[in-house]
Design a protein around this nucleic acid. Structure first.
Length: 567
RNA sequence: GCGCCCAUAGCUCAGUUGGAUAGAGCGCUUGACUACGAAUCAAGAGGUCGGGUGUUCGAAUCACCCUGGGCGCACCA
């Protein structure tokens, strides 16, 4: 991958010029004694929902009204009177409603923006707001004790899309998977595998209570049995369980790597809890906490005084049996992340772990690390829907729908799109029947079709001697329809959609933008013939179309979804 | 019991960080292919933003209290 620090276009956006005009106007008004304010509130320019409200609206006068001690409309009149549109980018300025300043841009402004968008090439939408910032994002991190299920898939896709968003905004991103390959769960995997293995060898070993009952444990045991025979029946049972647990964990982690790869996800690092322990990272972390005075012994266990940092109770670090808790190892891991010098550390967690956020923050603070650099994105549960009914999943019985099954059924693109359609902290209904449909009701195909449709237009254009080069050389001034200028306006919003999604860690914003852009393009296509008899008009429309296509492709790429030329 | 998340059209959800008459998609009704892909589009109907009080020019958005759902509260991770 190319260095994110280079080649990033400076974001122009459609708002910047208007912001400058408004600031200048206020400055002049203040100098002339017509405004009291010397410090402006942050300028908030919005794209109005109503077309009659213009291209951009400012609430500046409303925000200033109080300190000016004048009605908002009067303040707005003062500001508008001082507007100096030197470059002639404005077609109209109106004061509306309670005091909004509504602005409509001149067509020439949109033509200029379209040229800029075209000139940005495939880098369009990328920005430099994160340049020089190093971010580490940890996601999935499921125990290697079984295959990934759909809940994991949502965390996986969310984490991956967040990483892409941060990379697209110039951040240097590291993607990590924390492997809990130590502790009780792995011991239980070893015992479960041992029981299945023994069955295959003709021995009767009772299956452990709370063991992993899924059929996959039989498969794993069979794999080991096939390569190593029955020899682990001849050794001490504890040794056999330990070995089989390790072997099963390795096989299952390999399967997990395959599963995420099937969703087009890769990690830069897999960090092993066992290795952290072996390297003494957990010990030194506890010693640091102890030296800082936040560790005490009670009830036969060792505790962290997280209540000193606002947690509602203290948390155990070492169990009564002398084992580290999961928490202790996780604190050590996060301390190591800080040691690696990241500016921002992001974890994607299942919402059932939300209670862990305060204690992790407390531990970081106790270690003298800045908790503000640590952020957690909580991902809510996924309900699979088939035939209009929720698919039942029993975790205890091991009877859950795996990520692999979902991808096999609906494909990686639809899986990713559907799992990214909702804000991550809201529960999500995943309609498997809808995800499979190849119709307009299926939003992923709807968006992809808009992309393919442009490709199709260019195939037809080739027949009349028009191609990408012709489009690139087109005169956008031929685009005079309202729908055409509105499409440019939509395209112009893309960079700030990406920035907003990256800053707020909300990939679903990109999904919604793409659905709206696709809808706007489909509507335009149905109403306006692109390849008409007027050759100059046709090339101008091709210029618009190819930039719509490029923007859809850029958005889909951030989301990890393919942008096909034919469907 | 304490804490966190959620509640918006029949269904699934947006809502640009407090702005204008709350928006999409699905579903329902009615239409559009001798033209670049109808895998598309157009039109219509559909709302006490769970309820209440407050904050202010202005609240789906902020605060507090209810109601209803989800999830947490060491020796599982």
């Amino acid at each position: 991958m190319a260095s994110p620090r280079r080649g990033l276009p400076v974001r122009r956006g459609m708002k910047k010029p208007l912001e400058a005009l408004l600031r200048d106007a206020c400055e002049r008004a203040t100098k002339g004694g017509e405004l009291l304010t010397t410090t402006l509130p942050p300028l908030l320019l919005t794209v109005p929902k109503e077309a009659e409200h213009g291209d951009l609206a400012s609430n500046l006068a409303l925000a200033l009204a109080r300190s000016e001690k004048r009605p908002p409309r009067a303040v707005a009149e003062t500001i508008v009177r001082h507007l100096d549109d030197r470059d002639g980018i404005l077609a109209s300025v109106e004061i509306a409603g309670p005091g909004f300043i509504n602005v409509r841009f001149a067509p020439a402004y949109w033509w200029k923006l379209l040229r800029e968008i075209d000139a940005a090439g495939d880098a369009y939408g990328r920005s430099a707001i994160g340049v020089g910032r190093r971010v580490q994002i940890e996601f999935v991190s499921a125990n290697p004790t079984g295959p990934l299920h759909v809940g994991h898939a949502r965390g996986a896709v969310t984490g991956d899309a967040l990483a892409s968003l941060l990379a697209a905004t110039g951040h240097e991103v590291a993607r990590e998977y924390y492997v809990n390959d130590a502790g009780n769960q792995m011991a239980m995997l070893g015992a479960s595998t041992y029981a299945r293995y023994a069955e295959l060898c003709g021995h009767d070993v009772p299956f452990p209570e709370n063991g992993y009952q899924g059929d996959y444990v039989r498969d794993v045991a069979a794999t080991i049995h096939a390569s190593e025979g029955a020899r682990w029946m001849d050794v001490d049972a504890a040794e056999a369980r330990a070995y089989l647990g390790d072997a099963a964990g390795a096989i299952l982690l390999e399967a997990i790597r395959d599963d995420v790869a099937a969703l087009a996800i890769r990690f830069d690092r897999y960090v092993s809890e066992r290795q952290l322990r072996a390297e003494g990272t957990v010990d030194t972390t506890l010693a640091t906490l102890d030296a800082a005075g936040y560790v005490y012994d009670a009830e036969g266990a060792r505790w962290f005084r997280s209540t000193a940092f606002g947690d509602d109770k203290d948390r155990p670090l070492v169990k009564t049996g002398g084992e580290f808790t999961y928490f202790a190892a996780d604190v050590a891991y996060h301390r190591a992340k800080y040691g690696a010098g990241y500016d921002r550390i992001i974890d994607v967690w299942g919402a059932d772990h939300h209670g862990h956020v305060p204690r992790m923050r407390a531990a970081l603070a106790a270690l003298g690390l800045d908790p503000a650099r640590f952020e957690v994105v909580l991902v809510q549960i996924v309900n699979l829907i088939r035939g209009g009914e929720p698919v039942r999943m029993g975790k205890r019985s091991g009877d859950f729908v795996t990520l692999r099954e979902v991808v096999a059924e609906v494909g990686a693109d639809a899986t990713r799109f559907f799992l990214l359609m909702r804000k991550s902290d809201a529960q999500l209904d995943f309609d498997l029947d809808l995800a499979k449909q190849r119709t307009a009701e299926n939003p992923v195909f709807y968006v992809q079709y808009a992309h393919a449709r442009v490709a199709s237009i260019f195939r037809a254009a080739a027949a009349v001697g028009l191609d990408l080069d012709a489009a690139a050389a087109a005169d956008p001034a031929r685009l005079t329809e309202g729908e055409e200028l509105a499409l440019v306006r939509r395209l112009a919003q893309f960079p700030e959609i990406v920035e907003g999604a990256a800053l707020e860690l909300e990939p679903h914003r990109v999904v919604f933008f793409l659905m709206e852009l696709a809808a706007e393009f489909h509507r335009y296509y149905n109403r306006s013939r692109i390849l008409g008899d007027d050759r100059d008009l046709a090339t101008a429309r091709l210029l618009l179309a190819v930039n719509v296509q490029k923007t859809i492709r850029a958005g889909l790429t951030i989301l990890g979804i393919s942008a096909p030329d034919t469907m």
